[in-house]
C-alpha cells in the first residue's frame, strides 16, 4: 500500500455553504482542472422570485396589449367564399410561401419533416458540437463542400423562381465567403467573429434568416392571389 508521503491531502472548507470536500491526489498523476466550482445560490427564493417577477412583467405586458388590441374575428365561416388572400397563422406563412412554389408533397410534407428531423438530430452529430471555425480546419475540403452546396442550392432555388428564398441564401453565402477569405488575424472584430463560427452556426443562421424573411414576406408583402403588395398601400 502507499505510504503517507505518496499523496497530498487537501480540504475544501466552506462547510457553511457546501458539504466538506476532501481531495486526495496521488503523486503519480497530475491533477488538472476539469471544471471550476461557481458560487451557488438557493433556488428558493433567489431563482423562483426572479422567475415570478419576469412572469409578472410578461402578464402585465400581455394584459395591456389585450386591453388595447382586440383579437381578430371575421364573418362566420362560409365554405362558398374564400377570402382573398386566405392566409394561415403567421408562423406558418413561411411554409405557405413555399407552397406557392412547390407542390404540397414537397412544401407541405417533405420540407417540414426534414426540418423537424434536422432539428432533432443536431446534438447527435459531432460536427454540430465541435466549436472550430468552419474554414480553419480541413480548409480545402470544407471550401469545396461549401461551393458545391451553395451553388447547387442557389441554382435549385433560381430554377424554381424562388427568389424570396434565394436572396437570404446568397446573403448567407456572401458572409461565408468573407469568413473563408479572412483569418484569425484579420482586421476588424466582425470578420474575426465570422472566421470563428462553426458549420452548425452557419446552417442555423441561414435557417433563421430564411424563416424571418419568408414569414415577413408572407405576412406583409402578399396580397390577393398571393401577388406582391406593399403593406402601406392597402
Amino acid at each position: 500500500m502507499t505510504g503517507p508521503s505518496d499523496y497530498i491531502a487537501g480540504v475544501s472548507s466552506d462547510a457553511r455553504k457546501a458539504p466538506r470536500r476532501v481531495v486526495f491526489v496521488t503523486r503519480r498523476t497530475s491533477a488538472h482542472v476539469r471544471s471550476v466550482d461557481e458560487e451557488q445560490v438557493q433556488t428558493w427564493p433567489e431563482a423562483l422570485f426572479r422567475a415570478a417577477l419576469i412572469v409578472e412583467m410578461l402578464v402585465i405586458a400581455l394584459v395591456l396589449i389585450s386591453l388595447f388590441f382586440n383579437a381578430p374575428l371575421e364573418g362566420i365561416a362560409n365554405p362558398t367564399v374564400t377570402p382573398n388572400p386566405a392566409k394561415a397563422p403567421w408562423y406558418f406563412l413561411g411554409l405557405q410561401e413555399m407552397l406557392h412554389y412547390f407542390p404540397p408533397v414537397v412544401a407541405g410534407v417533405m420540407i417540414p419533416t426534414l426540418l423537424v428531423v434536422a432539428l432533432v438530430v443536431i446534438p447527435y452529430f459531432n460536427i454540430n458540437i465541435r466549436p472550430d471555425g468552419v474554414f480553419l480546419k480541413h480548409r480545402r475540403r470544407n471550401l469545396t463542400v461549401f461551393y458545391v452546396v451553395a451553388v447547387s442550392l442557389s441554382l435549385f432555388l433560381w430554377f424554381f423562381d424562388v427568389y424570396v428564398a434565394l436572396v437570404p441564401t446568397l446573403v448567407a453565402a456572401a458572409f461565408m465567403l468573407i469568413a473563408a477569405y479572412s483569418g484569425p488575424q484579420s482586421p476588424g472584430r466582425f470578420r474575426r467573429y465570422l472566421v470563428s463560427r462553426p458549420v452548425s452556426w452557419w446552417i442555423m443562421t441561414w435557417f433563421l434568416l430564411e424563416l424571418v424573411v419568408l414569414t415577413m414576406v408572407g405576412t406583409f408583402f402578399r396580397g390577393p392571389g398571393w401577388s406582391w403588395v406593399l403593406p402601406w398601400r392597402s
Partner: peptide
C-alpha cells in the same frame, strides 16, 4: 428543480 443554482445563470 435543483435546490441550488449557479448565480451566474440568474
Amino acid at each position: 428543480l435543483p435546490t441550488k443554482v449557479r448565480r451566474r445563470m440568474l
